[in-house]
């Protein structure tokens, strides 16, 4: 068997395994989906709430606000789904006790991550699609002028940079077996704060706005909002697409290098052994 075929087979191993895990943990998947839908709806209702609280004379466009917040919740759900599937590459296996078997298999870490990543993107798109369908139905959102393909392109482009960041931070559970998985939540919280998930970044203090420039989520959110709220053509999204592509091209190799170094450190200090 050629090396390329072996690599495809190995990458597929992670996709198939994750699909089997989703299938076997179906009850949990439903719970998570209901939670995500409820979360998305409750945030989006703030738009209508603002309209009601401000009164008719304030002329607040509640429908626009709802769609603004819906986009925030959906994009954020998609990006964090990718983030958690990748950062949990170690913690899931440590929990199950299979980490040593996976890491002693003769596969390149890039092949390993590719399998995990492809699954994360497909799962993320499906999961977010279901939440979007329910949300759009409940709020009776009008998407006739939205450039949905442009928004999808923006999301997929943004995935690359999030993949790189996720690989970098997936080393936390490797280096800190007891609390590493929880540490990844800090990264998500900071990115959420600075990226303008539920508000324009212009409302942030200057120092947070400066940080928002290096967050790929900032560009993804701006690009998707432009495509859906303004119906901007795909060509006009390029100023938002290229920064996230560039971040991905830089972040993925750095992430793999960081993971390689962390793996070596874990093998040196004996941190691979299971706990839990």
């Amino acid at each position: 068997m050629s090396t390329a075929m072996k690599n495809i087979q190995a990458s597929y191993a992670f996709m198939e395994r994750n699909a089997n895990l989703v299938k076997r943990y179906w009850a949990w998947e439903i719970v998570w989906l209901v939670y995500s839908i409820a979360n998305s709806l409750s945030v989006s209702f703030i738009g209508l709430g603002m309209e009601a609280l401000s009164g008719a004379e304030a002329n607040v466009n509640g429908r626009y606000l709802v769609l603004y917040l819906v986009i925030g919740t959906l994009v954020w759900r998609y990006l964090t789904t990718i983030f958690y599937w990748i950062t949990e590459v170690i913690s899931i296996e440590r929990w199950e006790g299979t980490i040593e078997y996976t890491l002693m298999a003769p596969i390149n870490r890039a092949v390993h991550m590719a399998g995990q990543t492809i699954f994360a993107v497909v799962y993320g798109l499906f999961f977010t699609g279901v939440i979007m369908a329910v949300t759009v139905m409940i709020f009776d959102v009008d998407l006739t002028n939205a450039n949905l393909m442009g928004a999808l392109l923006m999301l997929i482009s943004g995935s690359l940079s999030f993949i790189g960041i996720s690989i970098m931070f997936s080393v936390l559970p490797l280096l800190f077996p007891e609390r590493g998985a929880q540490m990844t939540h800090i990264v998500v919280a900071v990115l959420m704060l600075v990226s303008g998930v539920y508000y324009p970044i212009e409302v942030l203090p200057d120092f947070l706005q400066a940080i928002s420039v290096i967050s790929p989520a900032t560009y993804v959110l701006d690009g998707v909002r432009l495509a859906i709220l303004e119906g901007a053509s795909t060509n006009t999204l390029w100023p938002y697409v290229w920064p996230v592509l560039l971040m991905g091209i830089v972040a993925i190799p750095i992430g793999l290098k960081v993971f390689g170094l962390a793996e070596k450190y874990a093998k040196r200090t004996g941190k691979l052994a299971r706990n839990g």
Binding site: M1, M5, K6, Q9, A10, Y12, A13, E16, R17, N20, Y101, T102, A105, P106, I107
Partner: peptide, 8 residues
């Protein structure tokens, strides 16, 4: 089957 795929 997962284990086997890791070995090609």
């Amino acid at each position: 089957i997962y284990g086997a795929r890791l070995y090609g």
